Simulated assay, not measured.
Amino acid sequence: MVAPSEEHLDGTMLKGIRETLQMLKNYYHQRVTFYMCHKGIVTKLNGMTTFNNFWGSVARDIYTLIMDFVHFQCTFIEFIDKTPLNYLRGAQNRREPLLAE
């Protein structure tokens, strides 16, 4: 998910989940399990509890989409390999000229 750098991580994650669920629904998948290292979002999504902040409308979209699946589960995991993310961060910070002058 590409998002503005000033956007809060929770919002970016929720928007990514919403987009993924919509895509899976479009391809007629019926069983979904997300593995995440954000315990708060995992707990809220599994319990379908409200998000009392700016991201409540995105969460409501997610809860509506969840109803279209036979199985939905979020699983908390302690570790996710962040090597690809670190690579992207490094590429994002590098400012190299496109053509040699």
Score class of each variant (00 low, 15 high):
M1Y: 07
A3H: 14
A3E: 10
P4N: 09
P4M: 10
P4S: 11
S5M: 10
E6D: 01
E7A: 02
E7P: 00
H8V: 14
L9D: 07
L9V: 12
D10E: 11
T12P: 00
T12D: 01
T12Y: 01
T12Q: 03
M13R: 15
K15I: 00
K15N: 03
K15L: 04
K15F: 01
G16H: 01
G16R: 03
G16Q: 01
G16S: 04
G16Y: 01
G16T: 00
G16N: 02
I17T: 11
I17G: 09
R18H: 11
R18V: 03
Q22P: 13
Q22M: 15
M23G: 13
L24E: 00
K25V: 03
K25Y: 10
N26E: 09
Y27F: 10
Y27K: 09
Y27A: 06
Y27G: 02
Y27L: 08
Y28H: 07
Y28L: 08
Y28G: 02
Y28F: 12
T33D: 00
T33Q: 02
Y35L: 05
Y35D: 03
H38E: 07
K39M: 06
G40I: 08
G40P: 06
G40V: 04
T43Y: 15
K44E: 05
N46G: 00
M48L: 14
M48P: 04
M48E: 14
T49W: 14
F51W: 07
N52E: 05
N52I: 08
N53I: 07
F54Y: 10
F54I: 09
W55E: 01
S57W: 12
A59N: 03
R60D: 03
I62L: 05
I62K: 04
I62M: 07
I62Q: 03
I62N: 03
L65Y: 12
L65F: 12
L65A: 10
L65T: 06
L65P: 05
L65R: 09
I66N: 07
D68M: 15
D68H: 14
V70A: 08
H71Q: 06
F72K: 00
F72S: 01
F72M: 07
Q73N: 10
Q73F: 11
C74A: 14
C74V: 05
I77A: 00
E78G: 15
F79Q: 01
I80K: 13
I80M: 12
I80E: 14
D81A: 14
D81K: 15
K82Y: 12
P84V: 02
L85Q: 05
L85H: 11
N86R: 15
L88E: 03
G90R: 14
G90N: 13
Q92L: 09
Q92Y: 06
Q92H: 09
N93G: 04
R94L: 01
R95L: 05
E96T: 13
E96S: 10
E96F: 13
P97V: 05
A100F: 07
A100G: 03
E101F: 15
